[in-house]
Design a binder for these strands. Sequence first.
DNA 1: GCATACATTAACGCATACGTTATTAAGGGG
DNA 2: CCCCTTAATAACGTATGCGTTAATGTATGC
Lengths: 219, 219
Amino acid sequence: MAASQTNQALIRLREMVFTGELSPDSNHYEADLADQLGMSRTPVREAALTMQAQGLVEVQPRRGVRILPISAEDMAEIYDVLCELESLAAARAAEKSYTADDLRIAQVCIDNMDTALSNQDRDAWASADDRFHTELVRLGGNARVAEIVARYTDQVRRARMMTLPLRPLPVQSNEDHRAVLFAIENRDAQSARSLHRAHRQQASTLLTGLIREFGLRRL
Amino acid sequence: MAASQTNQALIRLREMVFTGELSPDSNHYEADLADQLGMSRTPVREAALTMQAQGLVEVQPRRGVRILPISAEDMAEIYDVLCELESLAAARAAEKSYTADDLRIAQVCIDNMDTALSNQDRDAWASADDRFHTELVRLGGNARVAEIVARYTDQVRRARMMTLPLRPLPVQSNEDHRAVLFAIENRDAQSARSLHRAHRQQASTLLTGLIREFGLRRL
DNA sequence: GCATACATTAACGCATACGTTATTAAGGGG
DNA sequence: CCCCTTAATAACGTATGCGTTAATGTATGC
């Protein structure tokens, strides 16, 4: 990817959205963002339009760029999508007769999650979890599925980060991952699909529950 | 949606992509497109960037805007996605206890397909089929699912149109639709899901088969 | 004859400028 | 005191221009 101003703006703005530096439901004028990023309005505007197509922001005349918040309902919608497509990917991966070596990256991610878990390092766990899901979807071999999963993972990234400290230590999660990978290794597509589906439904229930329980309004 | 130049460009360019006026795998300079559309490069460029995020074109420096072609493999990928998400929508719709009146639009679409079929009017059939799938997904109640389905339907729209005359009359298809709608009406989520899944797999096999059989390279 | 270096060209990236238009606030009428 | 009209403001939409840069063709040397 070219290091153009537009791409710089994209990278930086995404970062600002994910970290909450631009808070959910806040509005920002193109000119202000341009000043902050040290460039003119044009590349900022182009980046904003791209991010709008990705569902991260909304561009409205005279109201600037609005950072889209995530509600519990949004979360439920997105996890429904992730649930279907990731479990499809798991099934497809199981059909591909991968060798243990093909699955090494996924294995490493799981190991990293275990390590993070025993260190009670939630950030490291979340990072490894993210990589595991990305790798799983890559193993599924459908680039569109991978793209959609990446996009919607982006949409919930901030909300996940903000609720991370509220979650119980994800012990069950790691066992789920192992089971899914085991099914893929054993070429059991049915199990891989249903195990992963259950895993994601679990996560969905947990997260939407947390948001509702804590009355989190602007994620 | 504002009737801005950018939106005009979006509408017109999408049209040109769908009809094949801009042929698959062809490149077009921003300045040329701007001339054709009677506007400056700026709105054309913005529209092109949005369409790039939607997976319709690719914008590359000094190569202009490239209309992305659809291969049999792309088709298979996209139908895998549509298959999962539409059948999810069908299941969700079945869980919603819709009344016959709620399902009237879908019913009308099916009737229109029947009429078109008996008139051997493939275009009318395709149009009603499109509306049926859109309505089904709307009934599912998940806006993200609806958005993804719309986007990927766009990606295969041109290829579907071009292969339409090659297809046998879709008699089976209409029966499938009735069965899915029947299951939704009867609140049988399992059946709705599996029936629709089978329906889409059928379509996928048919279309990818056609593309391969006729050696269609640039769709 | 082929490869490499260089010059030429033009498409793009981005800054800038300006007219348009929605918003907001102020003022006047009810 | 509230509502409506109107004027001021400023953010945006889009045209334009220019420096940058990649692609292409040419010339030169091996």
